[in-house]
Design a protein around this nucleic acid. Structure first.
Length: 967
RNA sequence: GGGUCUGUAGCUCAGUUGGUUAGAGCGUACGAUUCACAUUCGUAAGGUCAUAGGUUCAACUCCUAUCAGACCCACCA
């Protein structure tokens, strides 16, 4: 059936319909593709945040990936484009936290289990939104293989990976200084910290010298950390302080003695040249402390409050402590000076809270053994980075990489598959020995709260809860920002963060969940005996750390059964995404998919996550798979707004791809993200640009409309009749070659621009215009068919739609799986191509003449132009230009040329335009001068390749002749 | 402090390994258009390819320096 094509392309309905047809066809699944396919092409989609919205970064990535996938599918490869989404630990958790805070809730109020449930709800509700948007973009990915990083199969892979690395000694637990986000209550990796210029003050503090009346002045932006100072450091080459080295200073307020040490890392030119050393709260100070074996005093807790070690400032917020300490120093006349100062403040990448470096026990990946093979993979060329300059960046980063902190004190993520036998949570102080008297009250709906601080607990302490009835541990946790624990109002899974069950029914329900073996009804007295243990002392449990998927029944070391509990922390999101290329294919099982599609062919992503993700995938794949995860890394640039700034939602400078797709069509968006861009290079996008590509899509639509609306049915055989026919068919062959070449070399922009140019400025503007009166339908159909195939990877919707409306032919196979065109050499004729350009010029002359003299379209124009002696050749520079070219043809070609211009009996009359002529003369003279200069240069004639010299000579002769005619 | 990138027409950007008189889109000016397309067509104006040196027969392209801008990394308290 032939449907009439609408006057203008209307993408909205078409796109939805076409995508359904594609998806239903099953061809997105490589197993269902027709024909024998030996070559494999596989590409894993970088999983977007499951709860996120599609932005232009995704759109760029997906367009590029889809171009490759569609091209390779047509080129006969077994093509897998594997989609998925990421649970995105911190950012999702922060988002849900913000959301629930609107209704006055917090994650602590909800408790871990309920909070995670909320996140899953959120995921279920919005997780399909992003995949719908990916579909809208036309992504030809195999949805039957879609994965989510928290799917059971991927969780299995994450656990297997962790356990193997742990058993191999590549993962260790250690007390180190880490980046702590007080708002997220979690440690962060170095990469998740962003530095931002912040105006602050620099305070100069006087530290009295021990046994002297003199002072040493140190400069600091954080006076509150002085309570944790354990040294003052100076540069060993600093003459001012040489005599102080190895003496002692007296710390103000606390009057603690601290050594004055020498360390090269101290910058003599900054501040006073003397620096206070606070190992617990500064990365550099921590390093210095390691080398000098200094004491480490933690004065700030994970809740951003001063710890017990801070003495009289205990419990104060950092801000208050700073204020109070400065006040004290001022009173004691130990504050020397205060100046304004702008410094780079470390902030949490996700929530922007200032980072507090502190000492904490965390899990780390030992990176040196992983980095070496990962460096080698790129150095040896097994992985190629496009553009290559990023290899340098990659090597630099890999060579300086530090151990990777992978534990997060978050709830949303893969819980670390590690079990402890006691130790970390051993009981010492039963602060509320449970209190049989509390229980009835609880059951009666009364709630009693205990201030943790009153019982000697401080934030950061690990606590565990245990039922005295069953001896079972309900949970363990870290005291973070809460100040009190409400007994009997505790969510059993996570007592540390206490949820309030205001009603007895809630408590009973919780009890039932945790003690399913006990029969219970509403009248039953509920006995929940809870103990809170202080971790600092020891009792039972041997301290064994066991990495295992499920809870071990007994400790393999001490054989005890009662003290095994799980680490509450979760893993860094990037740990699970690091496994992405193989975990999505079934690893650790040895699946057929894994065998077939790994290593993947290309990884396509923005350069901004080269370190976050790409580098880690390489390390993990080298380690687990003993092979590279992908052969090419294509890094696209970031999309900027019209002023070249990063798009920002809050500033409203962003372009949202969804309404743009609806307004201009997906194909137009796809082109606007690809054309005129180059890999690794950021580019600007704005609506006008998209509109111009929409115009192109419409142009293609109308060209097709023109061709398909011809009366005749599409001929089966190609018949070439005229110069114009020869020209366009020859150009098409070259286009096939260049497009294939360009896509193979990942030059998508160039491929697209060439296609754009061909369709618009060769086919539409010239071929169709010139042959309108004598159409060659076979050529029109031939060119259109091939053009649709060539552009399909870039603009799949419009091409498929035109393909389906092909005239007079039942199309059982969709364009998506048509074989990729091969150029037919016999049609390539560069001479014809050149001749046709003359024809074009000539046509322009005629057209302009017609316009100038307002000659109606039906009227014939006569153009005299022949021969250099013609009196008509005097003035019009365009004609002169044209003649100069035409005269280089022989007579036969001239005939051919004129013969192919139907309706033109030549006559042109024109008015003198000396200005034009002068300009032309000047231009040609200048060029001649240049050529003469070149040819008279002996070096040139001697050394340049013969061909080049001949070329230049010919050019000179040509130009001289041209000039003569002009004058 | 170390590193990367960018500087080409009024604006946004292409220019593949050095080799025709440096290109496109948008914008501007003038003109065209019943017969696929006003989401159209033609023509024109507009560039010492940031600046200064160097290598080469030949440089937008390679090298060096300078200027301007963007970004990344890093332990400036």
């Amino acid at each position: 059936m032939i449907k009439e094509l609408e006057k203008a392309y209307q993408p909205q309905d078409i796109e939805k319909r076409i995508y359904k047809i594609w998806e239903k066809s099953g061809y997105f699944n490589p197993d269902k593709l027709p024909g024998k396919r030996k070559q494999i092409f596989s590409i894993a989609m970088p999983p977007p945040n499951v709860t996120g919205e599609l932005h232009l970064g995704h759109a760029t990535a997906i367009t590029l990936e889809d171009i490759m996938a569609r091209y390779h599918r047509m080129a006969g490869d077994k093509t897998l484009y594997l989609p998925g989404t990421d649970h995105a630990g911190i950012s999702t958790q922060v988002m849900v936290e913000r959301l629930i805070s609107k209704s006055g809730l917090s994650k602590h109020k909800l408790g871990r289990v309920e909070f995670i449930k909320r996140v899953w709800d959120w995921k279920k509700k919005y997780g399909s939104r992003i995949t719908e948007q990916i579909r809208q973009l036309g992504a030809s990915c195999d949805w039957s293989r879609e994965h989510f990083t928290m799917d059971p199969t991927l969780t299995k892979a994450v656990q297997a990976a962790f356990i193997k690395m742990f058993n191999d000694g590549l993962i260790y637990r250690g007390k180190r200084i880490v980046n702590w986000c007080p708002r997220c209550s979690s440690a962060l990796s170095d990469l998740e910290v962003k530095h931002q210029e912040t105006s602050s003050k620099l305070w100069y503090l006087k530290y009295p010298l021990f046994g002297s009346t003199k002072y040493l002045i140190v400069a600091t932006t954080r006076p509150e950390t002085m309570l944790g100072d354990t040294a003052v450091a100076v540069n060993p080459n600093d003459k001012r302080y040489k005599s102080y080295i190895n003496t002692k200073a007296l710390l103000p307020i606390t009057n603690r003695e601290v050594p004055i040490i020498a360390d090269k890392r101290v910058d003599m030119n900054f501040g006073t040249g003397a620096v206070k050393v606070t190992p617990a709260h500064d990365h550099l100070d921590y390093e210095i402390a390691q080398d000098h074996k200094l004491e480490i005093i933690n004065v700030i807790g994970p809740d951003n409050r001063m710890t017990k070690q801070a003495g009289e400032f205990y419990g104060q917020s950092v801000q208050d402590a700073r204020h109070n300490i400065l006040k004290r120093l001022e009173q004691e006349e130990l504050l020397d000076n205060t100046v304004d100062y702008i410094h780079n403040l470390a902030r949490c990448e996700r929530c922007s809270a200032p980072i507090e470096p502190l000492i904490s026990e965390q899990w780390f990946v030992r990176i040196d053994k992983l980095a070496k093979p990962a460096i080698k993979a790129v150095k040896s060329g097994k992985i190629k980075i496009i553009p290559a300059r990023y290899e340098k960046v990659y090597f630099h980063w890999m060579n300086n990489i530090k151990d990777w902190c992978i534990s997060r004190q978050l709830w949303w993520g893969h819980q670390i598959p590690v079990w402890y036998c006691g130790q970390q949570y051993e009981a010492s102080k039963k602060i509320m020995g449970f209190h049989k008297d509390v229980v009835p009250q609880v059951c009666a709906g009364k709630i009693k709260t205990y201030r943790l601080r009153d019982h000697g607990f401080k934030p950061g302490d690990k606590i565990s809860f245990e039922s005295s009835q069953t001896g079972k541990i309900f949970g363990i946790g870290t005291i973070t920002s809460i100040k009190r624990v409400t007994v009997g109002a505790i969510q059993l899974d996570d007592p540390a963060h206490g949820t309030t069950y205001k009603k007895r029914s809630g408590l009973i329900a919780a009890f039932k969940r945790h003690h399913p073996d006990q029969s219970i009804n509403d009248d039953t007295k509920v006995f929940i005996y809870t103990y809170i243990f202080n971790p600092s002392a020891k009792t039972e449990g041997c301290g064994e750390i066991i990495a295992a998927v499920g809870q071990p029944k007994k400790c393999p070391k001490c054989k005890q059964t009662n003290h095994i509990r799980r680490d509450p922390d979760t893993l860094d999101t990037w740990f699970s995404s690091g496994l992405w290329t193989f975990s999505t294919l079934g690893w650790p099982e040895k699946t057929q998919d894994l065998k077939t599609y790994h290593p993947t062919t290309v990884m396509e992503t923005g350069w901004d996550i080269l370190f976050f993700w790409v580098a880690r995938m390489i390390m993990m794949s080298q380690y687990f798979m003993k092979e590279v995860p992908f052969k090419y890394i294509y890094l696209h640039g970031l999309v900027l707004d019209r002023h070249g700034k990063k798009m920002s939602k809050s500033k409203g400078t962003g372009v949202d791809p969804i309404p743009m797709m609806e307004k201009y069509g997906t194909d137009a968006i796809r082109l606007s993200l690809i054309l005129g861009t180059s890999p690794g290079q950021d580019f600007r996008l704005y609506e006008e640009k998209i509109a111009s590509y929409r115009n192109f899509i419409n142009k293609l639509w109308n060209v097709s409309r023109f061709i398909l609306s011809q009366d005749a049915a599409p001929p089966k055989k190609l018949a070439i009749n005229s110069t114009a026919d020869q020209w366009i068919v020859s150009r098409l062959q070259q286009l096939i070659n260049s497009t294939t070449e360009n896509i193979n070399h990942h030059r998508f922009s160039e491929a697209g621009l060439a296609l754009y140019d061909f369709l618009w400025h060769e086919l539409a503007d010239w071929y169709i215009e010139i042959t309108k009166t004598e159409k060659n339908i076979s050529v029109l159909y031939y060119v259109l068919e091939y053009f649709l195939k060539l552009t399909h990877p870039l603009i799949p919707y419009v091409t498929e739609e035109i393909w389906m409306r092909w005239k007079g032919e039942a199309r059982s196979n969709m364009l998506m799986i048509q074989p990729w065109p091969q150029a037919d050499k016999k049609f390539i004729d560069k001479k014809i191509e050149k001749n046709f350009f003359l024809l074009k010029d000539f046509t322009v002359v005629v057209r302009n003449f017609r316009a100038k003299h307002k000659i109606p379209a039906g009227e014939k124009i006569h153009v005299y132009y022949w021969g250099p002696q013609s009196s008509l050749i005097n003035d019009n520079s365009e004609i002169i230009k044209l003649l100069a070219k035409i005269e280089s043809l022989n007579n036969e070609q001239q005939k051919k040329l004129t013969g192919s211009l139907p309706g033109l009996d030549y006559y042109i009359d024109w008015q003198q335009d000396n200005k034009q002529k002068d300009k032309e003369v000047e231009k040609i003279s200048k060029y001649i001068q240049k050529l003469e200069g070149k040819l008279s240069n002996k070096e040139f004639t001697k050394k340049a390749p013969k061909q080049v010299v001949e070329q230049e000579k010919a050019k000179l002769a040509e130009q001289q002749e041209k000039l003569q005619k002009l004058l």
